[in-house]
């Protein structure tokens, strides 16, 4: 396949994943805002903007007015935000169009339809009463695309590159949430067991849609160490870092199998995988959760760059 096509498939998947992640983040923020006082929800909205890395752009447009409506409209559709859900869907669709021949008709149509629906849904500012529905629409559209991919794409290099894009992006997203919220999960004598803690912990889980799964696994008991372990190391949870690494590994293995050799990306990923394999959550806390997350984000990014170079994404 063409290097440009691999690049297009990879970024299509990343942009779709990013749009979905943003909608999950917003869902958590919205929930928090509905259940907490103004100040707490203000902080939550602020941390959301920080998570996606657009504090500067947001404040340039809105000052420090972190009201919910401004934040979600900024994240969903603001032209000043190059990472808005709408911009991501458009970018995904542009990439899909450019690699049209690498996609099945069903995948292309699912992406194109998502773009048509979301462009419509996000044509005007989203009011509070409509937010829930808009967020559900985004997730449903992304689910349709995923379903079309799962059900119709050949399991070949094209599929590998798109899955790699998905999991590079997803790992990055979960790590960024942890990066912004890590302090909530640090052991603190003063807060232990307070209801504030519970709410904060729950919000971390919600931003990756993991609260139900976590409760189910832990019979409802919340503790920061357990949550960190769940998000970082639990291989059963599809948005944990370990899960993303595992999927990267299997898709890179697929490429090595198809091409008959490994590349520098395989080596980098192996090093990252070993680190995860050896780490227990106690050890991670001991040597610093924040540093661990930072290192992951950097290493994940290195893997992505190595893939781009090894497989000749650009001339």
């Amino acid at each position: 396949m063409l290097g440009r096509t691999a690049n297009g498939v990879f970024w299509m998947a990343r942009y779709l994943e990013r749009a979905e992640n943003t909608s999950r983040l917003l869902e958590a923020g919205f929930r928090m805002a509905l259940t907490r006082d103004a100040e707490a929800s203000h902080d939550e909205w602020r941390s959301l903007i920080a998570t996606v890395g657009f504090t500067h752009g947001f404040e340039a447009a809105n000052g420090s007015d972190y009201s919910g409506e401004r934040v979600w409209n900024f994240l969903l559709r603001d032209k000043a935000n190059p990472g808005s859900v709408l911009a991501m869907i458009e970018a995904a669709r542009t990439n899909a169009r450019a690699v049209r021949t690498a996609l099945t008709r069903e995948v292309w149509e699912a992406v194109n339809e998502s773009w048509m629906h979301l462009r419509e849904a996000l044509a005007r500012p989203v009011r509070e009463a409509a937010l829930g529905l808009v967020l559900a629409t985004i997730r449903r559209q992304m689910t349709m695309v995923r379903g079309a991919m799962d059900g119709t794409m050949l399991r070949n290099e094209i599929h590998n590159f798109s899955r790699i894009g998905t999991f590079i992006e997803r790992g990055d997203n979960t790590a960024r949430i942890l990066d912004v919220k890590y302090y909530v999960l640090l052991p603190s004598l003063a807060w232990v067991g307070s209801s504030l803690d519970n709410v904060q912990w729950e919000s971390v889980l919600r931003s990756v849609s993991g609260e139900r799964a976590y409760r189910w696994l832990n019979a409802g008991a919340m503790d920061p160490r357990g949550i960190a372990e769940f998000l970082v190391l639990d291989q059963r949870f599809p948005r944990s870092l370990a899960f993303c690494i595992d999927k990267l590994r299997s898709n890179l293995r697929g490429l090595a199998h198809e091409y008959g050799h490994e590349t520098s990306a395989h080596e980098l990923l192996r090093a990252l995988g070993t680190q995860f394999h050896e780490a227990g959550i106690d050890q991670i806390f001991e040597s610093g959760l924040h540093e661990f997350i930072h290192e992951f984000i950097a290493a994940n990014q290195q893997v992505a760059l190595a893939i781009e170079a090894d497989y000749r994404f650009v001339a």
Partner: peptide, 19 residues
């Protein structure tokens, strides 16, 4: 489906940049 940027002349042939 190729674009100009995918192609170059190598060893007397027009070649496309694949993975």
């Amino acid at each position: 489906l190729v674009e100009g940027s995918d192609l170059r002349v190598i060893d007397g042939r027009v070649a496309m940049r694949t993975t």
